[in-house]
Every structure is written in structure tokens, then in C-alpha cells.
């Protein structure tokens, strides 16, 4: 009897546990979501009632709007660079810190600190200075290329790079999640592996990675989502410029909604983004069964 209760379904308890989220979902997410979906088929300037226009917004964005195409392109490039970079950096550092080297607690704090600045005005001022033509990065480049006097943050070819570096620099939260994951691996497994005489590489692929895979999967999904939704850093440092090279999708949607008062086409951008993201995330979820290891099904 008991055995059934453990592995069988239990609707009452299941819904009891997810109830808070369900209430919140219906109450503050679902209605705004439906409204935003409706807005995407209207012309809506926030200050007067929305007017239904059918697929007009989607059609305009996809066929006519060159800025939207640019925005899609720069966002894709951004995601493709940031995701592996940030994951590699934070996993690498987490592995270094996991062995508790001398001063690990201090390092952990130092590595997490930059994440605490988020997309604040202070960070914007600093980043524009660091990557200016007179900043330390430019000075460093001048060691190899004495004629260099461009502004890194202000030039079309390199502006997006500065935002990429910022996100890589703020790897603290991803690192902490990796660390928590590493700490969660039962030590017994390592002891067994040692007795078996496995080297560090074998141990990593036989023990660490499979055990960490669910956390890795989480970080992968989250990094993808957050990179697609990059907003505040670009809003405050480069404001989408120069020549739209950092006009990422959410920033463009925000501008359309709150600066150009076109909430309709702004919502349409959001729903296109959602569609793209669901496809990408869906792809990873579908593939996850092959390499993500869970204790429970």
C-alpha cells in the first residue's frame, strides 16, 4: 500500500504544493500575458484604447522593419558568443574553487562582487570609461598597435563586445550555482572513484559531470534565456547604439513601447522573441534526456 503512495500519482498533494505558484500565475501573469498577446494585434499607444489591426504589426516587423532585422541579428550573435563564454568561465572557476584552495572564501566573494553592480548607472559610467579611447583597455591595445585611438565602446564593430565582456565579467551568479551543485555531489562517489584508481579527467567525466548535469542544464537554459533577454546593461551603457549595433530585441521592444508609444508592435516583438526562445529551449529540453542525469524520473 505505502509503496503505491510513494511512486504513484497524488493529485491532491501535487496541487497543494504548486498552489502558490498557480495562484500567482493566474493572478499576475496569465492576464497580463493574454493582454500582451491581444495588444500585439492592435495599435496601442498606452494613452488611448487599443485598436485591432490584425496581423499588421507582425507583417510590418517581419517584412518592412530593417531595425527589427538588425535587432534579431545582433541578438543572435550576442547569444552565441555569451552563452559558451559565460558557462565556460563560471564552470572553470567553480571547479577551481570547489577544491577549497587557500583563501577560497575570499575568492568567492571577489568573483561574486561584480555581479552586485548589475546594470546600474555607476557601472554604465565605469564601462564607458574602461572601454574609451583613453581607458586602460585601449592603452593595452596600443602596446601592440600604437596607432589605435578608437573608442571601443563607441565604435560600431566593438560596442557589442563590451556588453559581452560585461556579462562574462558578471559570472558570479552562474558560478555560485555551479558551486552549490558541486557541493551537492556525495563525497562517497569520489572516494569510490579514487579506490578504483581513476585519474582526474576520468573522474570529471564519470562522476562530476553526470552528477552536475542537472545543474549544468539549469545554467545552460538560464544563460540562454537571459542572454536573449539582455536589456538593462545595453539600455544604460550604449542605449542601443552606435548605429543600432547593440539594439537587442528586448531593448527594441522597450523603445517601441515606451519611447515611440507603439505598445502593439512592441508586444509583437515580445511574442516573436517568445516563439524563438521556446523553440531553442524546447530543443534543449528534448535533447536533455540523453545527457542530463536525475536521481528521479
Amino acid at each position: 500500500m505505502r509503496k503505491v503512495a510513494i511512486s504513484g500519482t497524488d493529485n491532491r498533494m501535487g496541487y497543494l504544493f504548486i498552489a502558490p505558484w498557480l495562484i500567482g500565475f493566474f493572478f499576475i501573469t496569465l492576464v497580463p500575458m493574454i493582454l500582451s498577446f491581444y495588444f500585439s494585434f492592435t495599435q496601442y499607444d498606452l494613452l488611448s484604447s487599443p485598436v485591432f489591426v490584425g496581423f499588421e504589426n507582425y507583417k510590418n516587423l517581419i517584412i518592412n522593419d530593417e531595425r527589427f532585422h538588425t535587432s534579431l541579428w545582433v541578438t543572435f550573435i550576442f547569444v552565441i558568443v555569451v552563452v559558451p563564454l559565460r558557462l565556460a568561465v563560471s564552470l572553470g572557476i567553480a571547479l577551481l574553487l570547489f577544491r577549497d584552495p587557500k583563501g577560497h572564501s575570499l575568492y568567492k566573494t571577489l568573483f561574486y562582487l561584480p555581479s552586485l553592480f548589475g546594470g546600474s548607472v555607476a557601472i554604465a559610467v565605469m564601462w564607458r570609461q574602461l572601454f574609451s579611447s583613453y581607458g586602460p583597455i585601449a592603452s593595452f591595445i596600443r602596446l601592440f598597435n600604437p596607432g589605435f585611438e578608437k573608442s571601443i565602446v563607441g565604435s560600431p564593430n566593438t560596442a557589442s563586445l563590451t556588453i559581452i565582456i560585461l556579462l562574462a565579467w558578471q559570472f558570479g551568479s552562474t558560478m555560485l550555482i555551479f558551486l552549490a551543485g558541486l557541493k551537492n555531489i556525495p563525497k562517497v562517489y569520489y572516494e569510490v572513484s579514487k579506490i578504483d584508481g581513476a585519474g582526474p579527467v576520468t573522474t570529471f567525466f564519470k562522476i562530476t559531470f553526470p552528477q552536475l548535469s542537472s545543474v549544468f542544464f539549469f545554467n545552460l537554459i538560464l544563460t540562454i534565456i537571459n542572454s536573449f533577454m539582455i536589456f538593462s546593461q545595453a539600455y544604460i551603457i550604449t542605449e542601443g547604439g552606435p548605429v543600432d549595433k547593440t539594439l537587442y530585441l528586448v531593448l527594441y521592444a522597450f523603445k517601441r513601447g515606451f519611447e515611440y508609444f507603439q505598445m502593439g508592435s512592441s508586444s509583437a516583438i515580445t511574442w516573436i522573441l517568445l516563439l524563438i526562445l521556446s523553440a531553442v529551449i524546447g530543443f534543449f529540453f528534448a535533447n536533455s534526456k540523453r545527457w542530463v542525469y536525475y536521481e528521479s524520473k
Binding site: 570609461q129 579611447s133 578608437k150 573608442s151 565602446v153 563607441g154 565604435s155 547604439g241 552606435p242
Partner: peptide, 13 residues
């Protein structure tokens, strides 16, 4: 050039 202006956006800078 525009890039230089961008890095000197703040009034004080």
C-alpha cells in the same frame, strides 16, 4: 568622430 562623443556622454565628462 561619433565614437569619441559616445564615450564622453556625461555632461561632466
Amino acid at each position: 568622430e561619433p565614437g569619441i562623443l559616445r564615450q564622453h556622454q556625461e555632461l561632466e565628462n
